[in-house]
């Protein structure tokens, strides 16, 4: 096999991993949101407009992780590969792993607060604006690690690599992908849980919205720290080549 063939093979493999894994999380998160919206509608059928609107906005945010996976897959499939080093093949596999795996947790994590917001609007229709705002902040922050995965994937895609094959740089690029990918799963779900409980607490006691937002952000920042360790290690691995 020639170098070009290896790169082509890695790009299709990476694209499959990227969009395939990313689809898991986004779909679970969106399904959870829709389920909770159904539950809320079953006892508040007259709020159908508000709840459907919140459900769609929440699902669109949860979909972001899946869309990132699709974008990386398309960039992998349609990038020009002539005259590139054989190492590019390994970088492409790393990019697919980084984006795909890290999107699993973030899709689920962004769906959790969205579902609870639908439920909360059923409980407290008067504060639907505050609940939607808190949900958007919480889901947005829960996606941070998928964004770090996206960053690492873009770095791996566009890195200028030395010609020729060596096993250490090759493995460090796949390692960067694995590191950011697996490191992104847990923080995504954990931050989603923090946001979910904050939204549900505001739905119980709307007066605490300011305190809940700050506490949620501090908790999310702490639970994101393992994702940031992964980001640092992945950056070190990518930049060491």
């Amino acid at each position: 096999m020639t170098g070009i063939e290896w790169i082509k093979a890695a790009s299709v493999l990476g694209a499959g991993m990227s969009v395939g894994f990313a689809a898991i999380g986004a779909a679970v998160g969106e399904g959870y949101t829709a389920g909770k919206a159904n539950e809320a509608l079953s006892f508040r059928p007259n709020l159908v407009g508000d709840i459907l609107k919140t459900m769609l906005v929440g699902q669109a945010v949860a979909e972001t992780a899946g869309i990132f996976g699709l974008v990386i897959a398309m960039l992998l499939l349609f990038s020009p590969i002539e005259g590139k080093s054989v190492l590019t093949a390994w970088a492409y596999m790393g990019a697919g792993l980084s984006m795909g795996l890290s999107a699993i947790g973030c899709g689920i994590g962004a769906g959790l607060p969205a579902g609870t917001a639908c439920q909360g609007i059923g409980r407290q229709p008067m504060v639907s604006g505050q609940l939607s705002t808190l949900m958007l902040i919480g889901s947005g922050v829960a996606q941070s690690t998928a964004i770090y995965g996206f960053l690492i994937a873009l770095l791996l895609l566009y890195k200028q690599l030395p010609m020729g094959m060596a096993i250490v740089p090759a493995c460090s690029m796949v390692g960067a992908g694995l590191c950011m990918g697996f490191g992104g799963i847990g923080p995504g779900i954990g931050e989603g849980m923090a946001a979910m409980e904050a939204v549900s607490a505001v739905a119980r006691n709307p007066l605490t919205v300011g305190l809940m937002t700050r506490t949620m952000l501090v908790g999310q920042a702490v639970s994101e720290s393992t994702g940031i360790y992964s980001l640092v290690v992945a950056l070190l691995l990518v930049l060491s080549v």
Partner: peptide, 28 residues
Amino acid sequence: PLNVIGEVAKVVSISFRLFGNIMGGSII
């Protein structure tokens, strides 16, 4: 060191979120 990195990571995540969504949309 980790708190400092966490503050910098906030800037990365907030700007890449917007950039990724808009650029991703246009590529799709």
